[in-house]
Computed example of a mutant assay.
Amino acid sequence: MTATSPSTPRKRGRPTAAEQAERQDQILDAATALFVARGLGQVTIDEIAAAAQVTKRTIYTYFGDKAEVFTAVIERFRGRALSEQDAEHTSLLDVAAHLVLVLHADDAVGMHRLMIGESAQFPELAAAFYSSGPQGYIASLETYLDGRAASAEALFGLLLGEAHRRRLLGLDPAPTEAAARAHAQSVLEVFRLEGDGTASERPH
């Protein structure tokens, strides 16, 4: 992700809900670009404010401190991914392919690398990253596996697998939609061969 371009001049007075949402996205876009490029510990609230073309007070009002900005970046990413999934996908294969596409994408891999590098210095943020990211995706898979948490966790691990490790190391490019679906299909075949049962359709 990159910081958004300057928006049209803002009117005086209280911003509308749409304007507030746009401003929040502007801040999170700027923060994401800075975090991925330089690392969490090296970025200041002043720099985020300058990149987003807002005041520090605006950032504190919407999010709080830098740690809360980072948590909001992760939560927005997961929220968008799950929203797209809910809107478009009705089978376990659809959901699995979507997760592969999203989690192996450049922006997700960049955030994952960032958190690995910063986890020792910011253990609370590492916990928030896991809660807002992987745990959320695993919970989503549970709805297609009759609520079986262990099975959902195992499937999630397979969907990332060695392909994700290669992405983290920069050895492979991000997958296309077709490649993501093929990877998900092969994972589900292995998953079922190992005896984890028949996947259900999305509950209505």
Rank of each mutant, 00 (worst) to 15 (best):
A51C: 04
G110K: 11
R76P: 02
R113M: 00
V109K: 02
L40G: 11
T55L: 02
L99R: 14
A51H: 09
L125T: 08
Y60A: 08
G41C: 03
D65R: 14
E75H: 14
K66I: 08
E118S: 01
T61N: 15
I74C: 14
D86Y: 06
T44N: 05
M111C: 12
K56C: 05
R80T: 09
G64N: 06
T44F: 03
V54H: 12
R38I: 02
A67G: 15
D65I: 06
V100M: 02
L93Q: 09
V95S: 04
A50H: 09
A81Y: 03
E75W: 09
A50F: 06
V100A: 03
L125W: 07
A50P: 09
D65Y: 14
G79C: 01
T71L: 09
A126Q: 09
D65P: 13
V54P: 01
L103M: 15
S83D: 13
Q53C: 00
F122G: 04
E84V: 07
L101W: 15
D65V: 11
Q121T: 13
R113F: 00
A49P: 07
H112W: 12
G110T: 10
G39K: 03
Y62A: 11
R80S: 08
A37S: 11
A67C: 09
I116D: 06
A108C: 04
D94N: 06
Q42H: 13
I45F: 02
R76W: 07
E47G: 01
A87I: 00
A37E: 14
D86Q: 09
L114K: 02
D106T: 13
L99V: 07
Q42N: 14
A120N: 07
I59C: 12
E124A: 14
E75N: 13
I45H: 06
Q121V: 10
I45S: 10
F122Q: 08
H112N: 13
Q53M: 03
A67D: 15
Q42C: 01
A105Q: 09
G117H: 05
E68D: 12
M111P: 06
F63L: 14
L92V: 02
R113D: 00
V95M: 05
E124T: 11
I74A: 12
V69Q: 09
F70G: 08
L125H: 10
A120M: 12
E88S: 13
A51N: 05
T55S: 15
G64D: 10
T90E: 10
G117V: 01
L92E: 03
V95H: 10
S83T: 14
F63W: 09
R78P: 08
I48N: 05
I116G: 06
P123M: 05
A108F: 04
L125A: 03
V69T: 12
E118M: 00
M115F: 03
I48D: 05
Q121I: 06
R76C: 04
D107Y: 07
I59S: 13
T55P: 03
H98S: 14
A120Y: 11
L92R: 12
A87M: 03
P123C: 06
H89M: 07
E118Y: 05
R113P: 01
Q53L: 00
G64A: 10
Q85P: 01
E88T: 13
T71C: 07
A49S: 10
A126M: 12
G64E: 05
S83R: 14
H98T: 00
F63T: 08
R76M: 02
A67S: 14
A126D: 11
S119A: 14
G41N: 08
A50I: 00
V95T: 10
L92K: 04
L114D: 08
L93M: 05
L114P: 04
V73E: 11
Q53W: 00
D107G: 00
